[in-house]
Design a protein around this nucleic acid. Sequence first.
DNA 1: AGTTGTGAACCGATTCACAGCG
DNA 2: CGCTGTGAATCGGTTCACAACT
Lengths: 210, 210
Amino acid sequence: MRRFKIPEVTVGRLSLYLRCLNELEEEGIEVVSSAELGRRCGVNPAQIRKDLAYFGEFGTRGVGYYVKELMQDIKRVMGLNRTWEVALVGVGNLGTALLRYKGFQRHGFKLSVAFDIHTEGKEVPEGCVLYPASEMERVVKEKGIKMAIVAVHYSQAQEVAERLARAGVKGILNFAPMRIRPPKKVVVKNVDMGTELEILAFYLTMRGAK
Amino acid sequence: MRRFKIPEVTVGRLSLYLRCLNELEEEGIEVVSSAELGRRCGVNPAQIRKDLAYFGEFGTRGVGYYVKELMQDIKRVMGLNRTWEVALVGVGNLGTALLRYKGFQRHGFKLSVAFDIHTEGKEVPEGCVLYPASEMERVVKEKGIKMAIVAVHYSQAQEVAERLARAGVKGILNFAPMRIRPPKKVVVKNVDMGTELEILAFYLTMRGAK
DNA sequence: AGTTGTGAACCGATTCACAGCG
DNA sequence: CGCTGTGAATCGGTTCACAACT
C-alpha cells in the first residue's frame, strides 16, 4: 500500500517507533519483530505493521525488521534525514526555554533565528540570531525558512501566523494558548499546556481525587 | 445521558468551549446556540451537543445555552471550580519557564512547590517554594498534592513518576521526551515537543516543501 | 419557529486472523 | 516454522436527521 491520506496518529506513532528503535540500537539489537517492538512501546503489533505498510514493505517475513534499516526508512518517509531550520517567534519565558532546549537539535531541528518585539537585553544561544519582529518577513524569506515555532502572547498568535505564512512558512508549532486557524497551505499544530492540565483535572475529579 | 466512559477528545473540546465562552462573555453575549459556538471554535454543532450530553442537559430548546451558566457547568464537570496545587519536578530551562508562565494561574492551577536535585542559585517566583528532590515524597504527601508536572531529563522521568505516585500524586503532565508508563491509579499526559515538530516535518515533506 | 437532545447512519482507525512468503 | 502484510471484522467517535420541547 502506498501514500494516500495518512492519519496524524500514525505519524505520531512513527516518531514513537523511532525513539524505541534508537534504544534497541543502543542495546545492540539488530532485528526486531513487530511483537517485540509493540511490547516495548505499548502498541498493538498489527497496528505497527499497518502503520509501516502505508509507506512500503520494510520487514522480512519470518524474521522481522532490521533495526538500522527501519530507522533509516522511517526517517526518510518522515523527512528527518536532513536538518530543518526553524524560526522562533516570541523570546519570552517559554521562547527562551525552547531556544535552550537541546532536544530539538538531537532531532535535526535547528532554531537558527528568533524574533521579538523587544530585542534589548535578550540572550540567545550560540548559533542563533535575534532580530526585531519587524524583520520577520524579510529574514524568513531570505533564509527560505519553512518551519516556525510561535510562543507569543495569545492575542498576537493568529496575526504572527498569517505573517509567517506570507513569508513562506509552511508549518507552525503554536504554544500560545489559543488555537491558530491554519492559513492557506500551512500546517499548524497547537500545543496547549493549559488544556492538558485541565484534562488531567477532569480525570482526577472523575476518579474522586481530593 | 450520564457518566460512562468519556473520550479524551471530548474533554479536550470542553476546554476549548470554555475558552470560546470566555470570549463570548467578554463580548457581553449572554446566549449562544450550538451552531454559533460551533462556528466560532470550528466544531460541528451536533458534536458540541453530544459532548455536553455526556454530563447533562444544559441547554434550552428553541433558545440555546446561557453563556455564564454553561461556563459554570463545564467548570464543574471538569473539576475547575477550585484551585489545584501542582508540584513541578525539574527546574531547568523548561521547568523555569513553566514556573513563570502566567497561563496556569489563570486556569486555576498553582505551582506551589518545585523540586530539583540542585537547588543552589535557582530562582523560583513568589508563592512557590523550592526543595531538593530528596524531599519530594515528604512535601508532596504533607501538602496533599495530587497533580505534578515533570520536566526532568528523560532518563529520570519514569522513576520520578513512580516516586510521585507513591507520594499520592494522581495526575502527571510529562514534558520529558520519553513516554511515561502510567503507574497504577495515575493518569499521565505526555507532551512531546520533539514529536510535534517531527509530525510537522512529515506533512511538509509530503507536500513537497523545500 | 427555533434549537436542543439523541437514535441511526456513517466513517475512520484499530484489531483480528490468516494467507503469503522468506 | 515464524513473522509480515493485508482483507475482514470490530470498535468508537462523528455527523445526520428528526422528534421533543420551549
